[in-house]
Computed example of a mutant assay.
Amino acid sequence: MLPAMANVNQESQPQAEVVVNVTSTIEFTGSSPQNKTGVLIKAKALILPILMNLHAGYFRISLSLCSQALLWKTLSEPPSDGGAGDIHSLRKMLHRLPSTAFFLLWCFALFTLVSLSLIYVVRCFLRFDMVKNEFLHHVGVNYLFAPWISWLLLLQATPFFKPKTTTAYYLVLWWVFVVPIVALDVKIYGQWFTKGKRYLSGIANPTSQMSVIGNLVCARAAAQMGWKESAICMFSLGMAHYFVLFVTLYQRLPGSGSIPAILRPVFFLFFAAPSMASLAWDSISGNFDNSSKMLFYLSLFLFISLVCRPALFKKSMKKFNVAWWAYSFPLTAMAMASTEYAQAVKSTEAHILMLILSGLSVLVLLLLLLCTALNTTLLLPAADDHDGDHSSIVS
């Protein structure tokens, strides 16, 4: 490679400078210049596009997988009390779901989350300017909650220990994952409250509900551990801001931060928040009472309202994008809420609804996995396609 590059004319001076720098690095390591040059160039060509294009929005993938693992764990658990007739038989059938399949799904979710987390940590060190731009972006900042939500969901779905029997492990991990969420809450909610650079009426968008979902997931994890006061604290924090945010988004105030058409799948977060709220309050109160049912009914109504308007998502479905993964997590959250609802109501209709929503959630996840496997080049394009602008953050 070096002889070929040595024959370039004087007009290709930038290439000659690159060769000198690479050669000096290789000589310092004491290895073969010819072999190391090719390895470094290939490594740079492989890693740089990933660091340039993998933003926090990619944690939608881990969010979907971790929530799906939690759904499978919920379905495979035995019913808390006996049922009658077909309902009891259905619960026993779901309890026979293959434990190996659930374990493999949990391991796959863990592998995906660890991989994305490590890559993003490297991005923080090598491309901190892009991470800073993402934090300042009205859409990108909300997905900084996604990795911590994913870890909390994975913690609740773990097959290795239960929160009430091994509180020490659960408690330590809970604090590790909750502290970043609280820190982001203080930063974002404080700016909303004091009308700083990010006043709510100017930057509110559907992805802003990620902060609310983060607080509700924290509350559910704390309640399962037996920390009722911490759970109520996180629940009240999330719900107070959810009501304000929901009204702001509902009114479509002038100047409100809009999102591009390609991001319209995030509208599904409208019913993800009340679904997680119903699950959180179920864990806090100890039963799926009327408050949990009302939140579940709200999520079901919002879901039907969005499904009845397919034209809203027409432009976003023309070309595959990582934003498609925004469909999966809300459906899975509502499916988990439907399982608790069916357990509380004990009616055939409730169990049929649970099966429909759970099946739809699994089907959407499988389709997204297939589309992602067939379009990996679209998810991580060449480095010169996006030069660190906000287009890579919101897509």
Rank of each mutant, 00 (worst) to 15 (best):
A4F: 13
N7G: 15
N7A: 14
V8Q: 07
Q13Y: 09
Q13G: 06
P14E: 02
V18L: 11
V20L: 15
V22E: 13
S24C: 08
S32P: 10
G38Q: 14
L46G: 06
P49W: 03
G57Q: 14
F59T: 13
R60K: 15
L63S: 11
S67I: 00
Q68A: 01
L71D: 01
S76G: 00
S76M: 00
I87M: 07
H88Q: 15
S89M: 14
R91V: 01
M93G: 09
L104K: 01
L104M: 04
A109S: 06
L110P: 04
L113T: 15
L116K: 12
L118Y: 11
V122E: 10
C124L: 14
F135H: 14
L136P: 06
L144M: 14
L144I: 12
A146I: 07
A146T: 11
S150D: 04
L152R: 07
L154Q: 01
P159T: 02
Y170H: 14
V172Q: 11
L173A: 06
W175D: 11
F177V: 06
V182M: 13
A183Y: 12
Y189F: 12
Y189I: 08
G190T: 04
G196H: 04
A204F: 10
M210C: 09
L216K: 07
A221L: 04
Q224L: 13
A240R: 15
Y250V: 05
R252D: 01
R252E: 03
R252Y: 01
S256Q: 10
G257T: 03
R264S: 15
A272K: 07
A272H: 05
S275G: 04
D282F: 07
S283Y: 01
F288H: 01
N290D: 15
M294C: 09
L295A: 06
Y297N: 05
L298D: 07
S299Q: 00
F301E: 05
S305Y: 09
S305H: 12
R309D: 08
P310R: 06
P310W: 11
L312Q: 08
M317L: 15
N321M: 07
V322E: 06
W324K: 08
A326L: 08
P330Q: 07
M336D: 00
A337L: 03
V345S: 02
K346C: 04
E349K: 06
A350H: 00
A350C: 01
H351S: 04
H351R: 03
L355V: 03
L369F: 05
L369K: 02
A373V: 01
L374H: 11
H386W: 11
D387H: 13
S391T: 08
I393A: 05
